[in-house]
Design a protein around this nucleic acid. Sequence first.
DNA 1: TTGCTTCTACGACGTTTGTCGTATATATTT
DNA 2: AAATATATACGACAAACGTCGTAGAAGCAA
Lengths: 129, 129
Amino acid sequence: MMAEKKNKPTEAELDILTILWEQGPSSVRIVNVKLNKMRSVGYTTTLKQLQIMHEKGLVSRVNDGRTHIYTAERGKEETQKQLLDRLLEAAFGGSASKLVMQVLGNHKSSRKELEEIKKLIQKLEEDHS
Amino acid sequence: MMAEKKNKPTEAELDILTILWEQGPSSVRIVNVKLNKMRSVGYTTTLKQLQIMHEKGLVSRVNDGRTHIYTAERGKEETQKQLLDRLLEAAFGGSASKLVMQVLGNHKSSRKELEEIKKLIQKLEEDHS
DNA sequence: TTGCTTCTACGACGTTTGTCGTATATATTT
DNA sequence: AAATATATACGACAAACGTCGTAGAAGCAA
């Protein structure tokens, strides 16, 4: 594998990435409007944020006339994994099961979701053999 | 319930909290020595860090002669829950099961750990009835 | 054409984070 | 007692974060 950039998105950046994942490639304007549905933030703030994210390589952009269209460079799952790994190490001493028990114990999940998890565990146990 | 302080520990603070959880009430010296086993950091840095954490209410302290003995004010589980909740909302849209599937899929767990998780799910499903 | 709107670029600024250095008081050692 | 070691307190500082304001180009509307 390659030496990868360990660009961990900040909180604010994560909000923007989430919008790009949902919305697909978007202009600053669009991102800003969506962003303002969760918290109040000026247009130039969002612009600057996206510019910095572009420098960091978190997003790419193409020109559409004079406006830029931004696209999330890293997939949702990849980013989730990165953040989760960090928390796992920092707060749970690397024990995935401790983390899982915590989150399952504290948050309601539907029966269907629990079934899915059980199924996954089943498969993992088979691989274990 | 009361309006609580939402003092989320930073990365560095979390390292120190982890040490206090493991070690129990400790002096700056002890924390610093343990801390240096994971990364290089000066004594006064650790001191300052603990002083700030004290201001924030993350740790309490008592005097033992002229040295201060610091104690984690918030329990391990409580802090883990706080950090986990934050990530759950920020990166997983609040879906606990998505988070669980991610972490289980990406990190090896022993058969015993998987059993424990299954047992927990069993109990959750019973409560569901 | 003259103005309003909508872009990007860029600089500035207050905060937070993490890091130390220095000053000063108190023990400990020689 | 003098020198050395160890504590706390406090100030400084660079880098990262998040926030905007302003400038200037490009497009649209009167």
